[in-house]
Computed example of a mutant assay.
Amino acid sequence: MEQPEMIEETQEQKSAEGEQRYLTFWTASELYGIPISDVVQIISMQEITPLPDFPNYAKGVINLRGNIIPVIDMRIRLKKPEVEYTDNTCIIVTNIQDTYMGFIVDTVDQVTTIDPEDITPAPRVSKEVTNHYLTGIGQVNDKVVLILDLSKILTESEFKQVTETALQEEKDDSEN
């Protein structure tokens, strides 16, 4: 599989010792952050091919330079109301477990550095349950950033279902 073009950090963007770089984005009026190391590329919205038997949050697949990439709508996955896509809506392409996956977000905010001491642990949902994909809550100036682990946005079985269906679509396309 050909690798999509990587986002490259400039010298000024490279963080100092101990600091971590995050791509922040807005979804349903909430600011989220993911480690910049997880991001392959940010692309504008494009035609999404819906697939049968995909869960409602998995909108389908896109073809990015010959790579078939499953696309997840973050609003729906995070149980927020679905809205129509705008010119600001974009897809963050990531690499999870050696598989490319796209995440639709309302708009990308910025690449920022968050010091570890500015990140508090994710709150527990109950004594036994912690939000499994929220790794912490960061603060950047006056903004609160919910830090996500995208590899945990989908359960193992959901990840398998979405990626296997996308791989089958890629195989079918190459045979035609």
Score class of each variant (00 low, 15 high):
residue 25 F to Q: 12
residue 26 W to M: 13
residue 26 W to I: 11
residue 28 A to I: 14
residue 30 E to A: 15
residue 31 L to V: 13
residue 32 Y to I: 12
residue 32 Y to W: 09
residue 33 G to P: 03
residue 33 G to W: 01
residue 33 G to V: 01
residue 33 G to Y: 00
residue 34 I to E: 04
residue 35 P to H: 08
residue 36 I to P: 01
residue 37 S to F: 03
residue 37 S to G: 04
residue 39 V to Q: 06
residue 42 I to D: 01
residue 42 I to Y: 00
residue 44 S to P: 00
residue 44 S to F: 00
residue 46 Q to V: 12
residue 46 Q to H: 12
residue 46 Q to N: 14
residue 47 E to H: 13
residue 47 E to M: 14
residue 48 I to N: 09
residue 49 T to S: 13
residue 51 L to Y: 01
residue 51 L to A: 03
residue 51 L to V: 04
residue 52 P to H: 12
residue 52 P to C: 12
residue 53 D to V: 15
residue 55 P to F: 09
residue 57 Y to L: 06
residue 57 Y to A: 12
residue 57 Y to K: 08
residue 59 K to C: 13
residue 59 K to P: 05
residue 61 V to N: 01
residue 62 I to M: 06
residue 63 N to Y: 10
residue 63 N to P: 07
residue 65 R to Y: 14
residue 65 R to L: 15
residue 67 N to V: 15
residue 68 I to H: 08
residue 68 I to P: 04
residue 68 I to D: 02
residue 69 I to S: 06
residue 69 I to D: 06
residue 70 P to K: 05
residue 70 P to F: 00
residue 71 V to M: 09
residue 72 I to H: 09
residue 72 I to P: 00
residue 72 I to W: 07
residue 74 M to H: 07
residue 74 M to F: 12
residue 74 M to L: 15
residue 75 R to T: 11
residue 76 I to Q: 08
residue 76 I to Y: 03
residue 77 R to T: 10
residue 77 R to D: 06
residue 78 L to Q: 09
residue 78 L to M: 13
residue 78 L to I: 08
residue 78 L to H: 07
residue 79 K to Q: 14
residue 79 K to S: 14
residue 82 E to L: 04
residue 83 V to W: 06
residue 84 E to T: 02
residue 84 E to C: 04
residue 84 E to I: 07
residue 85 Y to D: 02
residue 87 D to M: 11
residue 87 D to P: 02
residue 89 T to D: 12
residue 90 C to N: 03
residue 92 I to D: 03
residue 92 I to E: 07
residue 93 V to K: 05
residue 95 N to S: 11
residue 96 I to R: 00
residue 96 I to A: 03
residue 96 I to E: 08
residue 99 T to N: 15
residue 100 Y to D: 02
residue 100 Y to S: 04
residue 102 G to F: 07
residue 102 G to R: 08
residue 102 G to L: 10
residue 103 F to M: 15
residue 103 F to W: 14
residue 104 I to T: 08
residue 105 V to Y: 06
residue 105 V to E: 08
residue 105 V to H: 05
residue 105 V to Q: 07
residue 106 D to R: 08
residue 108 V to A: 02
residue 108 V to I: 02
residue 108 V to G: 00
residue 110 Q to H: 14
residue 111 V to C: 10
residue 112 T to W: 02
residue 112 T to G: 01
residue 112 T to D: 04
residue 113 T to I: 05
residue 114 I to H: 02
residue 116 P to C: 11
residue 117 E to S: 11
residue 117 E to H: 04
residue 118 D to H: 12
residue 119 I to Y: 00
residue 120 T to F: 08
residue 123 P to E: 07
residue 123 P to W: 06
residue 124 R to W: 00
residue 124 R to S: 03
residue 128 E to D: 14
residue 129 V to S: 00
residue 129 V to G: 03
residue 131 N to V: 04
residue 131 N to I: 06
residue 131 N to C: 09
residue 132 H to C: 04
residue 134 L to N: 01
residue 135 T to Q: 11
residue 135 T to V: 11
residue 137 I to G: 13
residue 139 Q to A: 15
residue 139 Q to C: 11
residue 140 V to W: 00
residue 140 V to Y: 01
residue 143 K to Y: 09
residue 143 K to Q: 12
residue 143 K to L: 12
residue 144 V to G: 05
residue 144 V to A: 07
residue 145 V to N: 08
residue 146 L to M: 10
residue 146 L to H: 03
residue 148 L to G: 07
residue 148 L to K: 09
residue 149 D to Y: 02
residue 150 L to P: 13
residue 153 I to A: 03
residue 153 I to K: 05
